[in-house]
């Protein structure tokens, strides 16, 4: 049993230590940019994994909740004069409230109905952000969203985030680790196991006293909360928002990270969020051919590694273990 605990925590611990040590070796701003974006998309993909991988509901409005979080943070700081730290929790809560309002009617539907219903909700959100320009500035976009304010330290010094890639990286890494820990706790808890029960068989779950609707709603709200967090962090890091940040292409990107990384596993979405943007950037030299190559890659991976990278590693390890016996 003890050995098992070691085994479960060894790989994550090594990954966290490696992530913490990155600034010792890297000075390139561009690499930091990629790492910071990987943290943001990692949070978004991990939260998508909660509703999709663990509770089995294909929410195609995830990008919309990301956008709602981002615009909430942007509008609170720019129009109401909130500080970043004040706006951040509100952005998450606003996303979660929308999650509740959408979840109540949408979760009565199942399967493809739920997927397309949420997709339509996502399109409506994007169009409203685009057209309601007295509030959101529409196509002009929201500009100049502030970076996190300095955190004062004893002896008069302070951690500054503006133009400080290392501090920003550590901040986002912290949020990523927090998100993963919380979602890991949820997935491992009793309610997490009810998520899986509902995913596998709703009727069976209902027959042992689980309310499928309540379970799905809890998973949905939790997942939209963290999607809002990812959006708010994105808004503050990039400093500029346009309506496209809420549209279904964002959902697709997050979905691709989750699936290619390995849905239903903890590491998968993070691996996907780290690797795929790098591949997409590397293909940049191919110009217009890049998206074609990206598409071919997606189709090939999904056909030949249907359980994603993390699932593939699991499979290899299982084979290795069985061959040793």
């Amino acid at each position: 049993m003890k050995k098992n605990i070691l085994k479960t925590y060894l790989v994550p611990a090594i990954a966290v230590i490696a992530a913490l040590l990155v600034p010792l070796f890297i000075e390139n701003r561009y690499v930091y940019h990629l790492l910071i974006m990987a943290c943001i998309w990692g949070i978004a993909a991990t939260s998508m994994n909660l509703i999709m991988g663990y509770a089995g509901q294909v929410n195609l409005a995830h990008g919309a909740f990301f956008g709602i979080g981002a615009y909430a943070a942007g509008l609170l700081t720019l129009k109401l004069g909130f500080s970043f730290w004040g706006a951040l929790p509100f952005a998450c809560i606003i996303a979660a409230i929308f999650g509740l309002l959408v979840g109540l009617p949408a979760l009565r539907t199942k399967g493809s109905y739920f997927a397309i219903g949420t997709l339509c909700f996502g399109v409506i959100v994007t169009v409203i952000i685009d057209r309601w320009d007295t509030l959101t500035e529409g196509q002009r976009g929201l500009m100049g969203i502030p970076s996190p304010e300095n955190i004062p330290l004893p002896f008069g010094s302070a951690i500054t985030f503006e133009n400080n890639m290392v501090a920003t990286y550590y901040l986002l890494l912290l949020f990523l680790i927090l998100t993963v820990l919380i979602i890991y706790r949820i997935a491992g808890s009793l309610s997490g196991r009810t998520f899986k029960a509902v995913r596998e068989n709703e009727d069976l779950a209902a027959s042992i006293g689980i309310s499928p609707f309540r379970t799905k709603l809890i998973a949905f709200i939790a997942s939209t909360f963290f999607a809002g967090l990812a959006g708010a962090l994105y808004a503050s890091y990039i400093g500029f928002l346009s309506p496209e940040i809420s549209d279904f292409h964002v959902t697709f990107e997050i979905l691709i990270y989750t699936m290619i990384g390995g849905i239903g596993t903890m590491a998968g979405p993070i691996i996907g969020a780290m690797i795929l943007p790098v591949i997409s950037e590397t293909l940049h030299a191919l110009a217009a051919y890049r998206m074609v190559a990206y598409g071919i890659l997606l189709v090939m991976v999904i056909i030949f590694f249907p359980s994603g990278i993390a699932g593939g590693i699991k499979l290899l390890r299982a084979r290795w273990a069985s061959s040793k016996q």
């Binding site: 999709m52 294909v58 697709f252 979905l255 691709i256 699936m259 290619i260 849905i263 217009a288 051919y289 998206m291 074609v292 990206y294 598409g295 071919i296 890659l297 997606l298 189709v299 999904i302 056909i303 249907p306």
Partner: peptide, 20 residues
Amino acid sequence: LNSFIAAIGLIYIIENGALI
């Protein structure tokens, strides 16, 4: 979900192919 992702991949291939 895998067929769904494959379909998204096809969109990337065909739409950008037409663009090229």
